[in-house]
Simulated assay, not measured.
Amino acid sequence: MTNIHDVARLSGYSVSTVSRVLNHKDYVTTETRAAVQKVIDELDYVPNDVARDLSRGKTMTIGVILPNLDHPYFVQLIQGITKAAFVADYHVILLSSRFEAEIERTYLAAFRRKAYDALIFTSHGLPLAEIATYQKYGPIVICQPPRDSGLSAAYAHRRQTYVQALTTLKVQGCQRVALLMSRPIAVSETSQATAEAYRIVYGESPRPAMLATDVITMADGQRAAERFIASGQTFEAIFANSDDIAVGVQRAYQQAKLPVPVLIGQEHQLSGELAQFPTIDHHCQIVGQQALQLAVSGEKRRIAIDSEFINNW
């Protein structure tokens, strides 16, 4: 197999000169560059990326662990991460986890073996304390409040805008409010923030009958609303966890020929703008960009991005 030493021997130049030509560096004359390039072309030589990565001690790759791409939050987050990675000349590998702890452990084991220069957890199934033990192998960034884990974090500050949204509903006289969530309160930072905001505004914890979990897509939103309707429960408002999901809720009530409850969405999607729902913009792309920058720099920081309640009424 042809290597850089073959190119150097046949061209008559040093390995360092060949390396400068290959990496488009300065300090090489036009004549030298042309002579070396001629040999490279004749040999059809390309550098071995694996060997190059080993020599410089970096893969220039960031592993991004995410449960799915069904919810717009993760889509927008990945858009921010990949845009920032392009600017920083890093590659991004998406690592699907489905919130399964064992799968996440395999990614951490690969990280320990230097398969990635850093990891970003957009969400997680493992305890933060366990994830934090792998920081000795390189930078790990999470996209939620780090609590006392010691992990670097870039995340959306949610509770304040959740309180704003629910206060708006209460001021309008909405007392029976359903909450739609991706995951149960016990395991989700976002669901916990939603429930805490409800307690702040309404003075009590949300009851199980007013909650719907595993709601991720527009179809899930429609099914959740259909279950509410079938059970005979009536709600004056529904706080959905995306604008698309709110559209699914709206569809269920319209198809049942029932009055549509007041709806608030999240993630500031086109569907919400067209339907003129109030929404919450968590500025996920900015969160993703900040997470990538922390992963590349290795800086130990927590960066909270303020969310924005957009009231379209």
Results as ranks from 00 to 15, higher is better:
3 N>D: 15
24 H>L: 00
26 D>E: 09
165 A>K: 09
298 G>S: 09
91 H>F: 05
158 R>W: 00
106 T>V: 12
93 I>W: 02
208 P>T: 10
88 A>W: 01
71 H>L: 07
107 Y>R: 09
226 E>P: 02
168 T>R: 15
115 A>V: 03
34 A>K: 15
182 S>T: 15
198 Y>N: 09
312 N>Q: 14
308 E>T: 04
44 D>R: 10
81 I>W: 00
252 A>S: 14
293 Q>V: 10
145 P>Y: 09
227 R>Q: 05
244 D>P: 07
45 Y>Q: 00
67 P>E: 06
94 L>M: 04
265 G>L: 12
200 I>A: 08
208 P>D: 08
310 I>K: 10
133 T>F: 04
143 C>I: 04
169 L>N: 03
103 I>P: 00
121 F>G: 11
51 A>E: 01
55 S>Y: 02
93 I>S: 15
76 Q>R: 12
111 F>W: 00
225 A>W: 06
183 R>Y: 05
42 E>H: 14
275 A>V: 00
143 C>M: 01
3 N>S: 01
256 A>P: 05
109 A>M: 07
146 P>K: 08
9 R>S: 15
239 F>S: 09
217 T>L: 00
267 E>Q: 08
260 V>D: 01
182 S>P: 04
122 T>I: 08
250 Q>F: 03
157 H>L: 15
293 Q>D: 10
202 Y>W: 03
4 I>K: 08
55 S>F: 13
168 T>L: 13
182 S>L: 07
42 E>W: 04
190 T>G: 09
242 S>F: 12
34 A>V: 14
288 G>N: 08
257 K>E: 14
152 S>Y: 01
12 G>M: 07
127 P>G: 14
185 I>D: 05
31 E>Y: 08
9 R>H: 13
224 A>E: 04
226 E>Q: 15
61 T>H: 09
17 T>C: 04
102 E>A: 12
119 L>I: 03
267 E>G: 05
156 A>D: 07
301 R>N: 03
88 A>T: 00
27 Y>V: 04
79 Q>L: 13
64 V>K: 05
228 F>C: 01
281 D>M: 11
134 Y>N: 07
284 C>T: 08
297 S>F: 02
73 Y>W: 14
